[in-house]
Design a protein around this nucleic acid. Structure first.
Length: 895
DNA sequence: CCAGATGA
DNA sequence: TCATCTGG
């Protein structure tokens, strides 16, 4: 008997939704939305290429109710109706699938899942292997020997073993598990507080759902009560998640034989949708259907001849896409394992350098020397994805990456900073509709993960080659779009790209930390925490975990009966700081103890105990990572550790800055922009009063108080100044009366009065804000002074809260974003100055409006002047940019 | 308002 | 995942 060919079942409906949400909203020339059609069709094409099945079915949900709605009226009740933009793509997609020669099934009264279940059962009975392609995890219950579930968008194939790994139970128990946990997208309730972990544990213990129900009495705790209370619903949920595998279908499996594409219809449809690349394939290579096209050939370079040929090819390229493979995501620990290159679509090279199984004619050093001239050449433009990483890795390997011309991560970020992450996988999906091989599929994951040098060369080459080739494709897609936008492309060329080496250097440099200072503080805090716990337990009359907001709620509001001041978004009584403060003022003892405990525990857990763990064993310093494509406003962010939220506002907190030190012979210089965002607001709004106040060098909060309260400037008291400061602060966050009233502990109407008076006095600011709001609504984005575009994604949301949040963000964005642009310019300039000559200083940190440098003692004055001057002249505004710079042996003193 | 880290 | 707290 010959081996029977595989039946491929595609869950069209699940991919339709996912493609619709994951892909940009494409439209064809005549305005027909085509994004979801494109996504699903591409997915199907990839499946066809990969499996070349003779039997296929693309299955869709039928419109209208199903038998599940009769069982359970609430079924899918929380799901919003299908958006028009998606609905209008359904019929054209069906046409396209028909034209591709693929059997399509839409069966009234049942869902796509049930049709797939039925076909799977029939195929198994006929001894035919099955591949189910779906983004819907419910279908995992169908997996068995000979039945694989593939999630194309995640590039995962679930066999029984992987299902067990993912769900904690085998396929036969997946329906039981889903009944217990519920499925929010179908509005099927589960047992409250039971997640996948608990459900899997129970099912293992009692065999199956019936076992769990039988033994419900034995399960203790709150979840046990929840389980017993929900038994009826549980049985119903079980019925709903079970797939129906006896749907009546005409024609049997033979009806699913794949047909030939209808060329005429295909060409007509592809033209209509404007899918030009696909159309071109169709008209170019008439005979060979959709198969060819995005195939990638990766050449593994192992002989000297190949290496020479590669060098030659790179020498004649206008632009080289480049990627490094390494042993670690942490550049400071990463050893080179290989290089990949691409200079045209469909072709890539991989040069293995340190694979366990490699067998090259040349040594790694010989390969590096052969390529060094090209990699280091400033006149050979390169494009990469997140080149800061490669730059640091190469630096460690003694190679100085030159010619950093383009970075696809930054192209995407400056083109549209929000709405998507900017890692390669996200970009390939979003902009190319391509699903790239994940790192996990080549290197394994969890315990089984190996470092890249252990990955066989053959596997590594496919993966690495794809990275370089996709990077090139992304650049070819993104750059023409970005280049057309004058402002964003300027920000990209003049700020983001030049900043790459500056940040790379700062990360490599790191900052010195005095562990003894932190250890001493940790010990002090620990002692005080013990006292506080004891006192709190005494005050509560029982022991409890002070760090648990849940237990705290119980103690405060139920045991002690204190008044509930506010609720969290989820309806729990809030125990947030301001709430506790209010309770403390009312004379309760416990809230104060809690407040102090929380503050100190945070300090210890986040800073004094953790920072020393971050010291790198080789350098003895702390190396943060600056992220250049995360914050929507253009700011940097910092992680591992975050050095941009080191405490300063309280004395105990500020002490932590004592631990950030300069090594002997050097001092720390901390230079920060004073009131930079308000100054930018003065510039952008052109408000006369605000400009005048800055020009006169007045204390800006005092000046604001004088205006708002109608006083002479010298008559302003501390309280009035504090209120004015809160107003100024609030302004930059798009202030609402609600926010200000909370901040100042004032009634709403009084806060509103302050705001009104402010806008009466500062009419330029008022008009500017109104214009900004309108501009955001009209064009969907606002701009910084340097032309960076900041998109207000939800500005037209019908949800009031979301829309208003987007409006506030849009008002804040030009100021925060311009400040970010300015300090980036300053960093580039200061770094260039330091690198150009004998300036004995290093940039070590950036905290949004502050630069911290490590400076040789002897050169302090000249460096201070040089830094301040460059920061002040990073932009020419209608007001002067004021920079304050101080120095000292540690960050606290320097501030 | 924008971020990141922590603990339950 | 949520609440809380740190910074700007």
């Amino acid at each position: 008997m010959t081996k029977k060919s595989r039946l491929c079942l595609v869950d069209g409906s699940s991919y339709l939704y996912r493609a619709f949400h994951a892909l940009p909203s494409l439209t064809s020339g005549d305005g027909q939305p085509t994004g979801a059609i494109f996504g699903v069709a591409n997915m199907v094409r990839r499946m066809l290429e990969h499996y070349e099945p003779d039997y296929v079915a693309v299955v869709f949900d039928a419109p209208g109710k199903t038998f599940r709605h009769e069982t359970y009226a609430e079924y899918k009740a929380t799901r919003p109706p299908m958006p028009d933009e998606l609905r209008s793509q359904l019929e054209p997609l069906h046409e396209l699938i028909d034209a591709m020669g693929l059997p399509r099934l839409v069966i009234e009264g049942v869902e796509a899942d049930d049709v797939i279940a039925t076909l799977t059962r029939q195929a198994r009975e006929a001894g035919r292997p099955v591949l189910i392609s779906s983004g819907d995890k419910d279908l995992a219950q169908l997996v068995a020997d000979g039945v694989v579930l593939e999630d194309t968008m995640q590039d995962k194939q679930y066999d029984p073993g992987l299902v067990e790994e993912k769900f904690g139970v085998g396929p036969e128990l997946v329906a039981d598990l889903l009944a217990l946990t519920g499925d929010s997208s179908d509005n099927i309730p589960g047992v409250e507080k039971v997640g996948p972990k608990t459900a899997a544990k129970w099912l293992k213990q009692y065999g199956n759902l019936d076992g769990v129900i039988e033994h419900a009495d034995e399960i203790g705790g709150k979840v046990g009560d929840n389980l017993r209370g929900g038994l009826e619903q549980l049985k119903l949920s079980r019925e709903l998640v079970e797939l129906e595998d006896s749907v009546e279908l005409e024609g049997g499996l033979e009806a699913l034989k794949r047909g030939e594409p209808d060329r005429e219809r295909m060409i007509a449809l592809l033209k209509r949708f404007g899918f030009s690349t696909w159309l071109k394939q169709y008209t170019d290579d008439a005979g060979d259907s959709a198969a060819s096209g995005d195939e990638l050939v990766v050449e593994t370079v192992t002989t000297k001849r190949q290496l020479d040929a590669l060098v030659e090819a790179l020498q004649s390229a206008d632009l080289i896409a480049f990627d490094t493979e390494t042993t670690s995501l942490e550049p400071l620990d990463a050893d080179l394992v290989g290089f990949s290159f691409a200079v045209e679509a469909g072709k890539a090279w991989y040069v293995p350098l340190a694979h366990a199984d490699q067998d090259n004619e040349f040594s790694a050093d010989e390969a590096i020397e052969a390529l060094r001239g090209i990699i280091e050449d400033d006149d050979r433009p390169k494009v990469g994805q997140h080149l800061k990483y490669d730059l640091n890795v190469l630096e460690r390997a003694g190679i100085a990456l030159g010619g950093i011309e383009h970075d696809t991560m930054l192209e995407s970020y400056t083109y549209h900073s929000s709405g998507t992450r900017h890692d390669m996988d996200s970009l390939a999906t979003r902009y190319l509709g391509r699903q790239t091989t994940s790192y996990e599929t080549v290197a394994g994951k969890g315990k089984k993960q190996v470092t890249f040098d252990q990955v066989p060369v053959a596997t590594a080459a496919e993966y690495a080659g794809e990275d370089a080739e996709v990077t090139l494709a992304l650049h070819q897609h993104l750059w023409p779009k970005l280049e057309k936008l004058e402002g964003p492309s300027r920000v990209y060329r003049e700020l983001e790209i030049p900043l790459i080496p500056v940040l790379a250097r700062m990360e490599r440099t790191g900052v010195a930390l005095d562990v003894d200072v932190l250890a001493a503080q940790s010990a002090e805090i620990e002692k005080r925490l013990d006292e506080l716990v004891e006192a709190a337990h005494a005050a509560a009359g029982q022991a409890f975990n002070l760090g648990s907001p849940k237990q705290l709620q119980e103690i405060l509001f139920e045991q002690l009966g204190l008044p509930v001041k506010r609720k969290t978004p989820k309806g729990q009584p809030s125990t947030a700081e301001d709430v506790l403060q209010e309770l403390a003022v009312e004379g309760h003892e416990l809230p104060n103890l809690i407040l102090e405990h929380r503050g100190l525990a945070k300090l210890k857990n986040t800073y004094t105990d953790r920072l020393p763990e971050r010291i790198h064993p080789r350098t003895g310093r702390v190396h943060t990572h600056y992220h250049q494509a995360v914050a929507a406003t253009g700011r940097l962010s910092s992680t591992d550790p975050n050095l941009q939220n080191i405490p300063i506002r309280t004395p105990e907190g500020r002490r932590i800055r004592k631990a950030f030190v300069a090594p002997p012979g050097t001092v720390l210089l901390a230079a920060d922009y004073s009131q930079i965002e308000l100054r930018i607001m003065a510039h952008l709004s052109g408000d006369e009063r605000l400009l005048a106040a800055f020009a006169e060098g007045e204390d800006i909060h005092q000046a604001t108080a004088a205006e708002v309260f109608g006083l002479e400037i010298d008559a302003v008291d501390d309280n009035q100044r504090r209120a004015a400061k809160a107003i100024n602060f609030g302004l930059m966050y798009g202030m609402s009366a609600w926010g200000l009233s909370r901040q100042l502990e004032l009634p709403r109407n009084e806060a509103q009065e302050y705001i009104d008076r402010y806008f009466d006095r500062y009419t330029g600011v008022r008009d500017f804000m109104q214009e900004t709001r309108e501009r955001a609504r009209k064009q969907g984005y606002v701009e910084t002074l340097f032309g960076r575009r900041l998109w207000a994604d939800e500005i037209r949301s019908r949800n009031n809260q979301r829309r208003q949040a987007a409006e506030r963000a849009a008002i804040n964005a030009p100021m925060q974003g311009t400040a970010a642009d300015i300090i980036k310019r300053a960093m580039i300039d200061v770094d260039a100055w330091i690198q150009s000559g004998d300036v004995p200083a290093k940039l070590v940190m950036q905290v949004h409006d502050e630069l911290i440098l490590e400076v040789d003692e002897g050169a302090l004055e000249s460096v201070r002047e040089g830094v301040v001057d460059r920061m002040q002249h990073a932009a020419e505004l209608k007001v002067e940019l004021l920079v304050e710079a101080n120095s000292g042996p540690d960050w606290e003193t320097a501030h």
